[in-house]
Every structure is written in structure tokens, then in C-alpha cells.
């Protein structure tokens, strides 16, 4: 009995550390404020917080229990698209935090054409990802 209690406590502590780390990471990158700013839904921010928390809890439950559903593959596509958008926003936020573009554009003296550099990165990400899934994984 005492052993189970200790295991449960260690599990709780680990989950607490990982969960707060995840939230801290999201906060630093500022993805959620950015989304509310784009959609002008600042007052729904509490709902979005719950979305993140429930998403994390449901996903960890699923990855631990391995349930099986039989939905059509189109649902997988929808979920894939959403997860892609999320990862893309994380990647964009990361490059912004690192201040890559302002310095690069300044050095080259092309402040106006900065969108061109941005598109290089966006297309590079899409092409790299497609290449990875369609070709690279077979090698």
C-alpha cells in the first residue's frame, strides 16, 4: 500500500514538473496571445487555456492507454492539419525569439523584401517535411 502511494506521488510530481514546463514554454513563445490577437477574441483567453490543458491531459491519457477508434482517415487529415499549424506557429515563434530576420535583413540591406526571406523559410519547412514523410522515411 505504501509502495503504491509513493509511486503515485512520484507520478504526480513528474506530471506537475512536465506540465508547468510545457505551459512556461508556450508562454515564452507567445503563441496563444498571437492567436487571440489575430482573431480578436481576447476575452476567450480562459477558454483557450482550458483547451491547452484538456488537450495535454487527453493526449497523455491516449498515449498511455492506447485506445482504438475506427474513424475515417479524413479525420486523421484534419487532426494532421491542426497539429501542423500548431507546430508551424511554434517554429515561427522560435525564430522570432532568436531575432534571426531583423539582423539578416539589416545586414543585406533589404528591409523591404523581408517577406521574401520569410517565404524561403516557410516553403523550406513545407518541402522538408513533405520530403521527410514521402521519401526519406523509406531510406
Amino acid at each position: 500500500m505504501i509502495r503504491e502511494f509513493i509511486v503515485a506521488f512520484v507520478g504526480l510530481a513528474g506530471g506537475l514538473a512536465v506540465g508547468s514546463g510545457f505551459v512556461a514554454f508556450l508562454t515564452v513563445l507567445g503563441v496563444i496571445p498571437r492567436l487571440t490577437q489575430l482573431t480578436k477574441t481576447m476575452k476567450w483567453i480562459a477558454t483557450y487555456e482550458w483547451g491547452v490543458v484538456l488537450g495535454a491531459v487527453v493526449s497523455s491519457w491516449m498515449s498511455l492507454r492506447d485506445p482504438l477508434f475506427s474513424f475515417p482517415p479524413i479525420l486523421a487529415s484534419a487532426i494532421g492539419l491542426f497539429s501542423g499549424v500548431f507546430v508551424g506557429m511554434l517554429a515561427a515563434a522560435l525564430t522570432e525569439v532568436l531575432n534571426v530576420f531583423p539582423i539578416l535583413a539589416k545586414r543585406l540591406g533589404i528591409d523591404e523584401q523581408i517577406v521574401v526571406l520569410l517565404m524561403a523559410m516557410v516553403l523550406g519547412k513545407v518541402a522538408g517535411s513533405l520530403f521527410h514523410w514521402i521519401y526519406f522515411v523509406n531510406q
Partner: peptide, 13 residues
């Protein structure tokens, strides 16, 4: 799953 994911990556950025 993976092709929509890849396109979503670009849309997200």
C-alpha cells in the same frame, strides 16, 4: 495525416 500536417506547418508560420 502527414501531408496535411506538412501544409499546416507552413500555414502556421
Amino acid at each position: 495525416f502527414q501531408i496535411p500536417y506538412s501544409l499546416g506547418l507552413g500555414i502556421g508560420m
